Amino acid sequence: MEPVELKRILVGKLETPERSLHYDAKEKTLRIEEKSTGKGITLSLPGLTAKYEQRKEAAIDEIVYHVNEVFTVMNHDQSLDEHQRAIFPVIRSTSFPTENNGDTLIYEEHTAETRIYYAQDLGKSYRLVTENMLVKEGWNLNQLREIGRFNLRSLEDSMKKDIVAGNTFYFINRNDGYDASRILKQQLLDDMKRNAKGALAVAVPHQDVLIFADIENEQGYDILGQMAMHFFTNGRVPITALPFLYEDGELEPIFILAKNKPKDD
């Protein structure tokens, strides 16, 4: 399917009297805006086309749901003070936008591949915290960070385990929107490192999964690389296909080479 074909399908499902849709043929993007405010979301169609090729109508339904939730959140004004227990850090790629409709998003650097943003959980959706929201509430970044990390520590870390070619893989996949965020739980990483028989690798290919790998032989790196790429390609909110080695309390991105050997980035 070509991006222009996907555009036609999405226009048919997303167009309403309250919205205006603009297609940029050069950039291959579709902009959906609220007529009354000019606020909206821009979809990059080439990447979505690839998802459609893999998942067909399920991909369309997911895109439509996401866009509709964005417009719901934009018109949902809730105080941060009233919902402190619903604020969590979220992991995103370094290519993720740093502003939304002209309002700067609050974020912190994390690794060479990832950033930390903050989200206010609204139940079925969320909104990312912006500078204007902090100013309105009289908060600072330290307050936001402390509340977010406190809430993150309350989340369960139950895992599924799989052993492949002598290497042990653990998956956190609770689909609560914060699976990847658990990479920020220092105690969790330290516990996994202490219990690992070999090298400990970590991957956050998309928002809804965190992978730990206890690598005991060279084949383990190859398996982890293929696994991370698969999850990255199929994730709803992709982050990075590069895994990390966890050593001395630090995360270092690694490339998985053809000969199964890791190389520091």
Rank of each mutant, 00 (worst) to 15 (best):
A59N: 10
T130P: 07
L188K: 04
P238E: 03
P243R: 00
L251P: 11
I63D: 07
L6E: 11
K51D: 04
Y126M: 13
F88T: 07
L141C: 00
T114R: 07
Q54L: 13
D208Y: 02
S36A: 15
G198C: 02
F231S: 07
Q84K: 13
A199W: 11
R153N: 15
E252Q: 15
L105T: 02
D157P: 06
T168I: 10
G225K: 02
R145V: 03
E156L: 14
R115W: 02
G138C: 09
I215E: 12
K56H: 13
G249V: 06
F212C: 04
V164K: 10
D222W: 05
D248N: 14
L184N: 06
M229E: 15
L6G: 12
T130K: 03
L251M: 07
S79L: 00
E108A: 11
S158W: 05
A25S: 15
N100D: 15
N151S: 04
E108N: 14
E109G: 01
N173L: 03
A58G: 10
A58R: 10
K193N: 00
L189P: 09
G249P: 12
G198I: 03
V70E: 14
Q207V: 11
A25M: 15
I163G: 04
R85V: 00
V204M: 02
T72G: 13
Y170Q: 10
Q186H: 14
E146I: 12
E62L: 05
F171D: 15
G177C: 07
Y118A: 07
L152K: 06
K259D: 15
R182V: 06
V204W: 08
E69N: 09
L105G: 02
G47N: 09
N173D: 05
G166A: 00
I63C: 05
I163R: 07
A199R: 10
G225E: 09
N234I: 01
A199H: 11
K28L: 05
M1T: 07
Y107F: 10
T240D: 11
Q143T: 08
M159D: 07
Q219G: 05
F244L: 02
V11A: 10
D61R: 06
F171H: 14
D61C: 00
H22I: 13
G123V: 01
I223T: 13
R174S: 06
K13R: 14
I91C: 05
G220P: 10
E250D: 13
E2Q: 13
V64T: 03
F231E: 11
I41V: 11
D157N: 11
E216Y: 00
S44N: 12
K261P: 05
G102K: 03
V67K: 04
T233H: 12
L6A: 09
A180N: 08
D191C: 10
G235Q: 15
L224G: 04
D179R: 00
Y246M: 11
I183E: 03
H22P: 09
D157L: 07
R194F: 10
Q186K: 10
F171I: 14
I172H: 05
V11T: 14
F231L: 04
D264C: 01
G235T: 15
Q219K: 04
G148P: 01
S44E: 09
P205A: 01
E82T: 07
L251T: 05
